[in-house]
Design a protein around this nucleic acid. Structure first.
Lengths: 336, 336
DNA sequence: TACATTCATCGAACCGGTTCGAGGAAGAAG
DNA sequence: CTTCTTCCTCGAACCGGTTCGATGAATGTA
C-alpha cells in the first residue's frame, strides 16, 4: 500500500508538499500539483486513517451507542439507526456502532482511546447511567431521548406531551368522551423511558380539560401479554369509543388483535397510534397516527453534533430540543 | 489526556517498559509492573487507538457493510446486524457500520485507508458488484449470503435448499398433496437474491419427488400488494391444503390476512414459514417454521473472519458454508 | 576471582501522516 | 545593480504508540 512518501518520491517533491496538495492549506503551483495528483492516481494512494488521526487528533468517526433491551420491540430501533448512519456519512463521518451490554464501559473505552470525534447516544433514559462517563469523556455528544439532567449535551426528542395533546384533541374534536390509552410497558417507565409518562400525563391532563374520561393502561411487548393487556384496558372502560396506542409492539399487532375480537375500525372503535410513517408502512398499519419522526431526530442530532465538533468552544449553550410531532390521518377515527 | 510518556515519567521508567507491561510481550519485574500499573490507574491512561493502529497496522475494528433496499422488509435486517455486533465485541473488535448507498466506494475508502481489519458483507447477491472492489482491497473478508463467485472469501449462508426440503417433507409426511409456495418478490430474485430460487427450485423438485403438486408464486413486501399476491397464489391452486411462506413481509402480515379471509390455521390451511425464532417472537407468529438462524450465521461469520485476521496466510482455503436450518413446530400444520 | 548467563530495562528507530519556520528563486521597487 | 517582497517548496519536529538490539546488574559456574 502506497504511503505519502511513495507519492512524494514518484512526483519528485517532499512529503509536506504532497500533504499540502491533499489539504489545500497552502498554495502549490499548478504544475507541481498536477504531477502529484498524477502520482496519487497512479499509485492508488489513500492516506492512512490511523496516521492522520494521530497527527490531527480527528478520526472522522462518530460513535453510535445503543442497547437492545430484551423486552423491547427491536424493529423500532432500526428507524433511529438508519438516519443517523445516513446523515453521518453525508456529513463526512463514518459510524462506529456500539452495542456492548456495558455501554458505559464501552463509552469510556472508545472515547478515551480517541476512536471517535463525537458520540450519539440513543434511547436515553431519565436518569441515565451512561451520562456520567460521557461527561468525563469530555467529548462532543448528542442525546436522542430525554434525561432529567442533560447538562453539557445537546438533546433531541419528540415532544411527547404535544403528541399526546394532538391525539386527544383529534378525538375530542370528533366528539369522543371515553378514551382508552395503551402506554408502553411498566418496566420501560421504570427504566426511565420518560416518553411513557410525558405522553401519559399530558394525555390525562388534556382529556381532563376537555371533560373527557381517559383511562391509561400499560401495554406489553410480547405475546400473549399484549393481547391480555389490550383486553384489560378495553374492559376497564366498556363505554370507550376510542383507543390511543402508544406502544410499538402493540400497535404492530393491533390489526390482528382487533380482527380476532371482531372489533371494526373505525365503526366500533376509533384508533390513534403513535408511530412513524416508515413503521406504519413496514407493518401496513391502517391507523391515523401522531408521527414520531425518527428520521428527523436522527438528522437533527447528527447535524448538531457535527457542528459542535467543528466548533467545540462556542456554538452556544447546549440545546434541549423537543420536536413537534407530525400527524397522518389514515381515516381510523370517526365522529360520534 | 495522558500518554504513555506521562505514565513512563510518573513511574520513573521508559516508554518501552510501559508498553511491555501493557502487551505482556516481555517480562517486567513485579515491582516495576506494579508501579506502572498504579501510574496508569492514577492518570487514567488509555492507549491512543490511532497511534496504536499506526504502529501495529491493526485497528481492532471490523467493517459491516449493508444496504437498505427501499423494497425490502427492513426489520428483518436487524436480526443479522445484532449478532455480528455482539460477536465482534466478544472477539475484541469494534464495529464500523457502513450503509453508504455507494457501498463499493465505501469499501474502497475504508479499507484502503486502513480503518478496518476485516470486512463483513451482508446480504450478498449472486453477482455482487461489491466483490470486485473487495478483492482488490486485499483484506480478510466474509460474506453472509451466497455469490456465484465468492473466490477469495469465506461465505456463510443458510442452506435454503435444505430448508425447502424440510418444509415440503414436513407437509408430505402429513399427507398434503397440493401446496402453495409464496416466495420473495421477483425483484429480489432479479437483484440476485439467490435464496429466492435456491429455496423455490428445491421445493419444486422435492414436491415432484413426493408426487405433490406445488405452485410457487412471488409475494410482495408492501401493502396492498402483499394481500393481492396472497390471493393470487391461493386462487391459483384452490385445492391447496398447505401454504409455505418464504417471505418476511408476508409472513409478518399473515395472521391478519388469514383472519380477514376467514381462513383458520391449521383447520382450513396448514402453514409453514421460514423465519427465525426472534422474528417469530417479535411478530408473535403462530406458525411452524424452518428456522433461518441469523444469530448463528453472524457468529460463525465473525468468528471465521477473526480467525483469518489472526492468521492471514494459512488457515486453509476459503470456506463456503451452508448451514443446516432449524425447525420449530408451532402446531400450524395438521394431517389430512 | 574471573567469566558466562540470565534478567530487567533502556534508547532509538519506525509507523504515516501534518504543520511550522526557513530559505531559494523570481520579480518588483529603489 | 542592490534590496525587498512574494511565491513556492523543503526539512525537521511532532503526534503516541511498538519493537528490536543493546546494556548494566545480578546471579551462577569454574
Amino acid at each position: 500500500m502506497a504511503t505519502i512518501g511513495d507519492v512524494a518520491r514518484a512526483a519528485g517533491v517532499s512529503r509536506s508538499t504532497v500533504s499540502y496538495v491533499l489539504s489545500g492549506k497552502r498554495v502549490i503551483s499548478a504544475e507541481t500539483k498536477e504531477r502529484i495528483e498524477a502520482a496519487i492516481e497512479l499509485l492508488g494512494f489513500t492516506p492512512n486513517a490511523g496516521a492522520r488521526a494521530l497527527a490531527t487528533s480527528r478520526t472522522n468517526v462518530l460513535g453510535l451507542y445503543l442497547q437492545f433491551q430484551e423486552d423491547e420491540f427491536a424493529p423500532a430501533m432500526l428507524q433511529y439507526i438508519l438516519p443517523v448512519s445516513t446523515t453521518s456519512r453525508a456529513e463526512g463521518y463514518d459510524l462506529l456502532m456500539v452495542t456492548d451490554p456495558d455501554l458505559a464501559g464501552a463509552i469510556r473505552r472508545t472515547t478515551s482511546s480517541h476512536m471517535v470525534d463525537g458520540v450519539v447516544l440513543l434511547d436515553v433514559t431519565y436518569h441515565d447511567a451512561r451520562l456520567e462517563p460521557l461527561r468525563q469523556a469530555q467529548q462532543p455528544a448528542v442525546l436522542i431521548g430525554y434525561a432529567q439532567d442533560s447538562a453539557g449535551f445537546d438533546s433531541f426528542d419528540l415532544d411527547f406531551g404535544e403528541a399526546a395533546r394532538m391525539a386527544v384533541d383529534h378525538l375530542a374534536e370528533r366528539g369522543h368522551r371515553e378514551i382508552v390509552l395503551l402506554t408502553p410497558p411498566d418496566h420501560v417507565a421504570t427504566r426511565g423511558g420518560s416518553y411513557v409518562w410525558r405522553f401519559r400525563d399530558a394525555a390525562i391532563e388534556r382529556a381532563a380539560r376537555h371533560g373527557i374520561r381517559l383511562s391509561a393502561h400499560p401495554g406489553a411487548s410480547r405475546h400473549p401479554e399484549i393481547a391480555e393487556s389490550l383486553d384489560r384496558a378495553l374492559d376497564a372502560l366498556p363505554g370507550a369509543t376510542a383507543l390511543i396506542v402508544h406502544n410499538d409492539a402493540t400497535v404492530a399487532a393491533l390489526p390482528r388483535l382487533l380482527d380476532e375480537r371482531g372489533i371494526r375500525v373505525p365503526q366500533d372503535l376509533s384508533v390513534v397510534g403513535v408511530f412513524s410513517q416508515g413503521f406504519g408502512q413496514a407493518f401496513s398499519l391502517p391507523y391515523t397516527a401522531v408521527e414520531s419522526l425518527p428520521d428527523r431526530l436522527g438528522e437533527l442530532a447528527v447535524a448538531q453534533l457535527v457542528r459542535r465538533i467543528a466548533d467545540p468552544s462556542s456554538a452556544g449553550a447546549p440545546v434541549v430540543r423537543l420536536i413537534e410531532p407530525g400527524f397522518f390521518d389514515r381515516g381510523s377515527t370517526r365522529a360520534v
